[in-house]
Design a protein around this nucleic acid. Structure first.
Lengths: 257, 257
DNA sequence: CGTAAGTTTGACTTACATCAAGTTTTGTGG
DNA sequence: CCACAAAACTTGATGTAAGTCAAACTTACG
């Protein structure tokens, strides 16, 4: 198989300086068994035996680069080891929707399995590191391992649920509810990763957040200001601190009408 | 395991003609190998050997009944053999979003694999017949059959793509674009099933369509009237006839601004 | 055949978008 | 490290697409 576009942009892992640059290094990669993100990234059902065979290489990608492009042949799932990115879908008319804001522990690319091509472009928001999980390898491993097969199914199913929640948000909520829900969801995800769930740095611009929530950047900015004034949060550019979570939650839960 | 709610309302498999109304099983499954919907329902990779073992029973459900409820334990995927339904997600605040409008050949329930519970309520829009694919059976079959395993993955992945398109629509399009996209998508799906792609009967009310597209029923109604006046379609209640597909397509493709 | 559910259409309101101008932050090269 | 240009952000004034409220009409079903 021809090397997918992405591999041509691989930056060698800086770990042991002596190691040849990636592309092999299967067992040589640190493996998932000791990874702190394991619980998030692979479903709990993932069997230990398989763990260190799934990830064949690590990739470093710099802020502003593209990890996969819409239409690229599907070859692998990518897990975020560190950093963050957004996945973007585009209408025929050129409008952009940020389908996901992904942070460490998230797995991306699952939509490509059926279509054999990725249908999102994944843009890297800060210097990041990814674990590459070639899909035919994953499938082969799963064939001999019932639990791993289940893990793959769960991973896909989890993605369906995630998107359904987003759809629900876009279809039913008003602007302030969307932003509140976004912030609370983000906080939960940071907590699950052991980071502070009340204080974090947004890696997306107001425009990108707007593109995610189906709003314009001015609306996002105004809402941040309003939440700040109302004492729900403290914002300073990209730094956000949640002050009154209950209030945000109540915003989300309260029917608009 | 306790009998899942859905199955408790099912009558044992081999059965006579005279059954009490709702949710009734309609006899031993004829198998998928001769089914006209096979191409749509199961991915092309599905191996012949597995085909007749996947569906264990057929269910008849009458209009207005509920096939699965949000929160029910996940046990099976359901394929629509004939008829149609909507799947509904609900916000904490009680707002409803119609996550999908499903017609013959569609498979539902995939989101439950991860969560072990369904997270949509599926309401039946007209008297319909379903093929029940118990998931542990499907998994077991897939374990011994690489192609079937792939089919399951593809089925899930296809659902992710479907939802992503809907998300894109909700996040970026204006009302008239949404309705146009909805009609064109529906037409395509009918064509793929061998039905007329230019003339069909909507089984959803204006309110349900609105709930699907993130609009209010009055807006949907007005748009139908406008499309009618503009000569794009001909509407008469639930009967719709597409007249000028190109015009609808152009609406969808034209950037709003 | 009658009643309830669904649909259409109009008048009015509103949440968010758009346009615009000024301020702050970021990142780069001297 | 600073300077300065570009990008990102904030805030106000105004516009508009879609929502809300309301009333009359049509369709479907028990």
């Amino acid at each position: 198989m021809a090397a997918p576009a992405i591999l041509s942009r691989v930056i060698p892992m800086p770990l042991p300086k002596s190691m040849p640059p990636p592309l092999r290094a299967v067992g040589a990669a640190p493996g998932c068994s000791g990874c702190v993100l394991r619980e998030l990234c692979l479903p709990h059902s993932t069997p230990d035996e398989a763990l260190d065979a799934i990830v064949t290489q690590r990739l470093r990608v710099r802020r502003g680069e593209t990890l996969v492009r819409r239409g690229d042949p599907f070859t692998a799932l990518y897990a975020i080891r560190s950093g963050s990115c957004k996945s973007v879908v585009t209408t025929p008319g050129g409008q952009e929707q940020v389908a996901g804001y992904h942070i460490a522990g998230d797995v991306m690319g699952a939509e490509g399995i059926y279509a054999t091509r990725y249908d999102c472009t994944v843009a890297v928001l800060e210097d990041s590191e990814f674990c590459v999980m070639p899909f035919d390898r994953l499938s082969a491993l799963a064939r001999d391992n019932r639990d791993l097969q289940r893990s793959v199914n769960e991973m896909l199913s989890r993605e369906i649920s995630r998107e359904r929640r987003l759809m629900l948000m876009l279809g039913t909520m008003r602007a302030e509810q969307r932003l509140a829900a976004f912030l609370l969801d983000l906080a939960d995800r940071y907590r699950a990763r052991g980071y502070s769930s009340s204080e974090f740095i947004l890696r997306m611009t107001r425009e990108e957040i707007g593109g995610h929530l189906g709003l314009k950047l001015e609306t996002v900015s105004r809402l941040f200001s309003r939440f700040h004034q109302d004492g729900f949060i403290r914002v300073q550019g990209k730094e956000v601190k949640l002050i009154d979570r209950a209030a945000l939650q109540q915003l989300v839960d309260t029917a608009p009408a």
